[in-house]
Design a protein around this nucleic acid. Sequence first.
DNA 1: TCTCCACCGGAATGCTTGGATG
DNA 2: CATCCAAGCATTCCGGTGGAGA
Length: 334
Amino acid sequence: MIENARVLQPEFIPSEVEHRDGEINHLSHALDPITRGERAEAAFLTGPSGAGKTCIAQFALTRLRENVIDINHQYVNCWEDYSRFKTLYRILDGINETLNIHRQSTPTDVLLDRLRDYDGAPYVVILDEVDQLEDKGLLYDLYRISNLELVLIANREEELFADLGNRLSSRFSSCERIRFDQYNESELVSILEARARWGLTSGTISTPELQIVANAAAGDARTAIGILRTAARYADRDGADRISTDLISEAIPEAKSEIQRKSLDKLTEHQRCLYDIIAEAGEITPSELYERYTDCVAHPKTKRMMRNYLSKMEHYNLIVGNGKTRGRTYQPLS
DNA sequence: TCTCCACCGGAATGCTTGGATG
DNA sequence: CATCCAAGCATTCCGGTGGAGA
């Protein structure tokens, strides 16, 4: 059934991209000066998740590499590499400059100096989920490096610029802004058709079923492809020769909770205990939560530490906190 | 309106850890 | 092997905030 699992993976970049010609051209145009050895304006991609921002950024870069012989590039996910050090390290990694950089005896500014000293081919850096970057001042430092080209990706433009402060905002005011809208249902269906064609045995799924998948994904291509992947896996498991609507119904909630499950696996014993209490209670006050938590584990941490755990879990979209001070409650996010 | 105080989150500080260094 | 050092974790202290009740 599954002939090429790779094309159903979230990180797969297809060799042809549908329904995003305008955005690709816009980005290619913004990067065009590089082909003439000039400096490009920073590009800024915004839009909801699953709208193809990451995919188009990498795709446009691949195409650029076909036109420019000598160019380096690196993709950085700021959600994972959120600190100044980690981001810089990842960027240096892309040009193999990380030799002799060790955690100790390496103040972060040494990393920046080394990046400044770089005088090789033009270097394009994609900073995905840039709003998650802890130290936004890093953007200013990166911006000033001459042969470094930035492609920034974030969900909402306003939120990022609110964090940047005036000096930085004006610095990036001239950047090339590219907005992405959600895919509509028929666009999602044709994206899914392409993935099914590349990845699955032909005839295993037809358009009406793909419409159900697309509908459930609500414009999010990542979710849509996740559902298709899960359904195909189920079909394999059952030894079925095609993907039925029943299998899709089974796959929809599963695929939607897959990301959450991955996050849950990353939690420590204490964090997991807190999450379980919140999930079981449905809604709970901080003091009640702490009380139950102290009963749940052998050596409970302090309240302050619990707050750190909770904010981390909010960052992972596992829970939400309602209210700011007194009367705050926590709820699980389904 | 004023006073509590539950709760948040920043800052200072100490302890632990893991990889390079001698 | 012992040593060193910054990251990361945890604790303590504390100022700020805003809802509840006098």
